[in-house]
Design a protein around this nucleic acid. Structure first.
Lengths: 354, 354
DNA sequence: CTGAAAGCGCTTACAG
DNA sequence: CTGAAAGCGCTTACAG
């Protein structure tokens, strides 16, 4: 803190410190890493001298090379970091991961599957393990990671690697069943990233959907469709829209177009694949004087705080993203057996679809 | 990807690869790092053999030791990671930082000033530079960081280090002036982390406030007080409450107590130091049938999306947290001169205090 | 409890 | 364009 930002920083090393003190480098190392390997007296002397000379402990680069471990766990996010950091669900996942890593002396490195192009060799392989969140735009990102280190997939699958999921299909089946208990005239579905090629708007026959098993949104759709069929609707006839990115800005135009349909075409129930989508529907409906739930019922998915700490409260399905993160982190650290996990969700009946 | 999680991973090194190919280690290194240092033919041969043998590039631990640079920038957050990741303002800052780092081939390591206790030597000093966000609970966190590497303070100050701020005092002066243009009967202020000892509720004479210059909320308070005095109020008589953590859960009880005051004691204008606080006031007011803005006017601070993409829209001051992050990141990378910066804010007149 | 020594896996002048 | 060699700063058996 004291030292100014100088051009020739007198970087002091463990060896310098040992020399200065007239002890071996082993003792200095032990003073920092294994207190039981030397006398408290000597340890004290070493630490105080270190502090005096501005030596703040062994260099992490050298230590990680020597020990083969960095105590860093990387989280690889399918989306851009900018998006992920501002998405409530991703943030909760990261919070759960960070909580466990922190408790166990590890730190969190953020990587994106949508990096800037060039990206030379990359510092990714400094990490001791990888938690991969969401369907990667390219599998190359993953194959560049060192295969011998542990890797956990969250919300999608990687060959031979354990994954952590929530029960997407039962969850969306449950919420759709709840919504359909009082029959809508014109149900509609707003999907999230479900088409093979980008589509931000109505899904038509032109579009190919991602294959089941590839994305969780396909499972959510299956749950909706099954419930619709059971309630006498022909699933294929229920209109669907697609949203490319789970942000207000990207959702808004698609939803505006839906809400601006003539009264006799406008859906009176919208099953949304995320709370972000549902909240955007809610805001735009309020702006238009469309009454929720009288004229339009809305359901979400995720159970984020923003949908609950407000009025009207969102009817949704809560997934415990924090716990998802904790489990993934514990598996990476070897505190929990590395095997596929499936978390349960909880139906929350709010005001937007009582 | 193929290889199973085995117990004895046949970790291959650059040297092994060189041996296998019958070339020098320098050539292999150059194949990955400096394409111009060898023939395209040889480079191709090296890369394809590497790929065949499952060598995914030079080990980052060794490279960072050798070069002295890790291409990792650490962000040290004053709050817990769990809190910071779920806070909109912190997330925007991180997004701005990540955007710039990503563009320039760097990655982001998250550290917290409120770590788990023991935390041995720590991997913090693996980073090439440090962006420190918010007043640290203890300065020890900072003095443990290597002093010779660049460090930027955001939203607070560190001796001898450049800082990035927004114009807190003018901003809160401006929004208070706007609010006071139509005179309230009973104005009140809800502060954020302003007391020396924790206080979640009404601030009384018992409490000592943090010193000016130590925290941005003190500057915000100065702006409020100055505007109040100019409008004929005795600042010292305006009731103040304090919130310990900028989350709905922590805000709610304090705000509930304020709103449940008898009608003739309840403030009719609440100047809040964050949008999170203001939004919580809004939600709890709606639940109680208190009309906003007729019975109660509310102002926020930050300009987060959640306060704007909804109805009624929050009246607030927008700070560009993303840009704050971008600037800090550019300074750390040496893309911008390392000097104190002050960003301007923008008054947003929403529906909660027209 | 201490000290001398090897080596983690790279990159980079340097000489050819 | 290529190859031999030094060394980044540590930790860890190992012998004393």
């Amino acid at each position: 803190m004291e030292s100014p930002v100088s051009h020739a920083p007198p970087r002091i090393t463990l060896k310098d410190l040992a020399l200065e003190l007239g002890v071996s480098t082993a003792s200095v190392s032990n003073a920092f890493n294994r207190p039981d390997q030397l006398s408290p007296r000597l340890r004290e002397r070493i630490l105080s001298e270190a502090s005096r000379l501005g030596y703040s402990g062994p260099d992490a680069k050298a230590r990680s090379l020597r020990t083969g471990r960095s105590r860093i766990i990387a989280v690889v996010l399918a989306e851009t970091l900018t998006y992920s950091l501002n998405d409530a669900v991703a943030s909760e996942l990261l919070a759960g991961i960070a909580e466990v890593l922190d408790t166990h002396g590890h730190t969190l490195l953020l990587l994106s599957g949508r990096q800037h192009v060039s990206q030379a060799p990359g510092s990714a392989n400094i990490a001791d393990g990888f938690i991969v969140y969401g369907l990667m735009p390219s599998m190359k990102v993953l194959s560049d990671l060192p295969a011998e280190r542990p890797m956990i997939a969250v919300d999608f699958d990687i060959n031979e690697r354990p994954s952590v999921h929530v029960d997407n299909e039962p969850a969306s089946h449950a919420i759709a069943t709840h919504a359909l208990a009082s029959p809508p005239k014109r149900p509609g579905i707003i999907n999230l990233r479900l088409t093979e090629t980008p589509c931000n708007g109505r899904i038509t026959d032109e579009h190919t959907l991602l294959v089941a098993g590839q994305t969780i949104t396909r499972s959510r759709l299956a749950g909706f469709h099954d419930a619709l069929e059971k309630h006498g609707f022909v699933a294929a006839n229920v209109p669907m829209w697609n949203i490319e990115e789970n942000t207000y800005e990207v959702c808004a135009p698609v939803i505006a177009a839906i809400l601006d349909l003539p009264d006799d075409e406008r859906p009176d129930l919208l099953l949304c694949m995320s709370d972000r989508i549902a909240l955007t529907v809610l805001t735009l409906a309020e702006q238009r004087g469309i009454r929720v739930p009288e004229d339009l019922r809305i359901t979400g998915f995720d159970g984020i705080a923003e949908g609950q700490n407000r009025g009207p409260r969102l009817t949704t399905v809560r997934q415990n993203s924090v716990e998802k993160g904790r489990i993934a982190a514990r598996m990476i650290l070897g505190l929990e057996t590395r095997e596929d996990r499936m978390l349960h969700t909880e139906l929350i009946i709010g005001d937007t679809c009582p």
